[in-house]
Lab assay of single mutants.
Amino acid sequence: VKKMAKAIMADPNKADEVYKKWADKGYTLTQMSNFLKSKTAGKYDRVYNGYVIHLD
């Protein structure tokens, strides 16, 4: 998940494709939050927020 999150950060155009894969795998927002937690607070906030919007 972190590898794909980094791919989104490097190229935001990949976001919809990645979010669809995550949704197809049934990842919940709680799971995504836990996967994307980082020592650098807020590092993956943009990715998480994008997934929230995708699921909505």
Rank of each mutant, 00 (worst) to 15 (best):
M9E: 03
D16A: 13
L29A: 12
S38F: 08
Y19P: 03
Y48P: 00
L36C: 03
Y27R: 01
D45H: 05
T30N: 13
K2Q: 07
G50P: 01
A23D: 05
L29H: 05
D11N: 11
S33C: 11
I8Q: 01
V18L: 06
I8D: 03
T30G: 11
S33G: 12
A7D: 11
D45C: 09
V47W: 02
D56M: 15
A41Q: 12
Y48N: 02
K20Y: 04
D16S: 11
A15R: 08
M9Y: 05
V47G: 02
K14H: 08
M4E: 15
T28A: 03
V18Q: 05
A5W: 04
Y44E: 01
E17T: 10
L55A: 02
N49P: 04
S38A: 07
Y51S: 00
V1K: 04
D56N: 15
K6M: 13
M9R: 05
E17W: 12
A5C: 07
A10V: 10
D56L: 15
W22G: 00
W22F: 01
A5Y: 03
P12W: 15
A7Y: 09
A15T: 06
K39T: 14
Y51W: 02
V18K: 03
D45S: 08
N13I: 08
L29D: 04
I53Y: 09
H54Q: 03
W22Q: 00
K14D: 02
N49D: 14
K14G: 06
Y44M: 02
Y48H: 03
T40L: 08
Y44R: 02
T40Q: 12
K20Q: 12
K20R: 13
F35P: 00
T30R: 10
M4F: 07
T40F: 09
G50A: 06
K43R: 08
N49V: 12
R46C: 13
M32K: 01
W22M: 02
V52M: 12
M32Q: 00
G42A: 06
Y48I: 14
K6E: 15
I8W: 02
N34D: 14
W22E: 00
N13E: 12
K2Y: 05
K21L: 15
G26T: 03
D16I: 12
Y44W: 09
Y44H: 02
N13L: 12
K43I: 09
N13Y: 10
P12A: 11
M9V: 06
A5H: 02
A10M: 13
A15I: 04
Y27T: 00
F35L: 12
T30P: 09
A7C: 09
V18R: 01
R46V: 15
K20H: 08
G50C: 08
Y27Q: 00
R46A: 15
Y51K: 01
S38K: 05
V52W: 08
I53M: 14
A10G: 07
H54M: 05
K21N: 12
G50W: 04
A41W: 09
K39Y: 09
K2E: 06
Y48V: 07
N13R: 14
Q31H: 08
E17Q: 09
L36D: 00
L36R: 00
I8N: 03
V47S: 01
A41S: 13
I53K: 15
Y51Q: 01
K14E: 05
S33L: 13
A41F: 11
G42Q: 05
N34K: 12
T40N: 09
L29P: 10
V18H: 03
D16W: 11
K37Q: 12
A5E: 01
A41L: 13
S38G: 07
K14Y: 09
K21G: 09
S38E: 05
M9L: 15
P12R: 06
D24L: 11
Y48G: 00
K39N: 12
Y48K: 04
S38T: 10
M4Y: 07
A15E: 05
V47L: 03
Y51H: 01
T40D: 11
T30D: 15
N13D: 11
M32T: 00
T28R: 03
P12Q: 08
A23R: 10
A10W: 09
V1A: 03
M32D: 01
P12F: 10
S38Y: 09
K2A: 03
M4I: 07
D11A: 06
Y51A: 00
D56T: 15
K3D: 12
A5P: 04
M32C: 03
F35K: 01
Y19V: 00
W22H: 00
D45W: 08
Y27G: 01
G42D: 07
V1G: 01
Y27C: 05
D11T: 05
I8R: 00
Y19G: 00
G42N: 09
K2F: 05
A5N: 02
D56H: 14
F35Q: 04
T28Q: 04
I53A: 15
K43V: 07
H54E: 02
F35N: 04
V18T: 09
T30S: 13
S33R: 14
